[in-house]
Amino acid sequence: MNGQNASSPIDNLKERLSREPASDIKLALRNEPEVQNLARSIDEHDIIKILEYGKEPAVEISSFSDQILGVMRTNNVEDSGQLLMQLGKIMDRFDKKDFDKASGGLFSKLFKRSEKMLDRLYSKYQSMGKDIEKVYVEISKYQSEMTETTTRLERMYEQNHQYYLTLEKYVVAGELKLNELKTTKLPPLEQEALNGDTMSSMELDSLRNAIELLEQRIYDLGLAKLVALQTAPQIKLLQRGNAKLIGKINSAFVTTIPIFKSGLIQAVTAKRQKLVAESLKELDRRTNEMMSKNAKDIAARSVDIARLSGAPGLKIETIEECFHIILKGIKETKAIEEENNRLREEGRQRLQELQKKYKNSKLQ
């Protein structure tokens, strides 16, 4: 075909399928040597061979649709839902008030409470950080699994396309043979039977039976081809849903959670610095009352210490923003998963119905 590699007829046919009407493709396939050889291989005298014509690709597409159903039945969606619920419970423990400026008071009260407050703060957010890390690891694994599934679906889509093209060739070859039987072999036998030839009458009955069986077989292969055709968009829907999930997981969790964890560490450290600074500031004030001669010098140092220790590297607003991003990601991911679950269920039901029709037609 105009210098194209002889090893890529399927690729050429796929490209034509994407840009030409199905009727034109069928007409083109009639001239394919492979299709003509398939038509010649059909022996109208061998009933068993007619009944098994195209059996291999038909069985393969039926088995392949079961694989798609298997992918639809995976419990990744349910597992991810549990992860999101767990992450949501962890995020509920975050309280912005924990990092607000401590209320003023006497030095003795501030000094006594600060150490206990810091212990509680460290304990709470250290535990929260560990829990987030566990969920983060699981979410990262889930993202990797979704990426792997998407790649596998792409291979399955390609394989499904190959099955469809193979079945199309078998259907066209069967139609060629059917046309040959009806136009070149059937009329002479009918004429001879009308003339009273007994042997011709027997051959005519056999030929009519073969034509009927071949028509039924072509119909069965057409149903199998329909299963392949209906499976393709289901695969693409699964891929699209997975891509949305991967994008949302990456933006809302994989990127944001490490920033949120780092922010927690800095925020707790900043809180400690603020409490120490407040304690020192109050101590300086009381000392200043007792030592008026050194008031200016001590006050200046207190301000310097407060300035140095009071400014955190990461603002609490950034932590709060990360918090809201994660919560928003949980809601949006749940919505995407529910939509994917619905599409999986619809696709599973459609494929099962097609398979039932296909199997019932074979029994008739």
Rank of each mutant, 00 (worst) to 15 (best):
M1T: 03
S7T: 11
P9H: 05
P9E: 05
D11L: 05
E15G: 00
R16T: 14
L17Y: 15
S18K: 14
S18L: 12
A22R: 13
I25W: 01
K26Q: 12
L29F: 07
P33R: 03
L38S: 04
S41W: 12
H45A: 14
K49T: 09
I50W: 02
Y53R: 08
G54C: 09
K55L: 06
V59F: 09
F64Y: 13
F64W: 13
D66N: 15
L69H: 03
M72A: 10
M72V: 02
M72S: 05
R73C: 03
N75E: 14
V77I: 13
E78L: 12
L83M: 05
L84V: 02
M85P: 00
M91N: 01
D92A: 08
D95T: 11
K96Q: 06
D100P: 03
A102V: 11
S103E: 11
L106H: 12
K109V: 13
L110I: 13
K112A: 13
E115M: 04
K116L: 04
L118A: 04
D119L: 05
S123L: 04
Q126M: 06
Q126L: 08
Q126H: 07
Q126T: 12
I132E: 00
Y136H: 09
Y136C: 01
I139V: 12
S144G: 09
M146P: 01
T150W: 03
T151L: 10
T151N: 11
R152P: 00
L153Q: 11
M156G: 04
E158F: 11
Q159A: 10
L165F: 03
L165E: 05
K169I: 11
V172P: 01
E180W: 10
P187K: 02
L189Q: 07
Q191D: 11
E192Q: 14
L194D: 03
G196V: 05
D197P: 05
T198E: 15
L204I: 10
S206M: 15
L207D: 04
N209M: 11
L214T: 08
I218F: 04
Y219G: 09
L223F: 02
A224T: 07
K225N: 11
A228C: 15
L229F: 12
Q230T: 15
L238R: 00
N242D: 11
S251P: 01
T255G: 00
I257H: 01
F260Y: 00
K261Y: 02
L264M: 08
K271R: 12
E278S: 13
S279V: 09
L280C: 10
K281M: 15
K281V: 05
T287F: 12
E289S: 08
M290Q: 13
M290W: 08
K293F: 12
D297I: 07
R301P: 01
S302E: 07
I305L: 14
I305Y: 14
A306L: 09
I319E: 00
F323L: 06
I325F: 02
L327Q: 05
G329H: 01
I330L: 01
K331W: 02
K334E: 04
N341S: 14
L343W: 10
E345H: 06
E346C: 11
Q355K: 15
K359Q: 14
K362W: 06
L363Q: 12
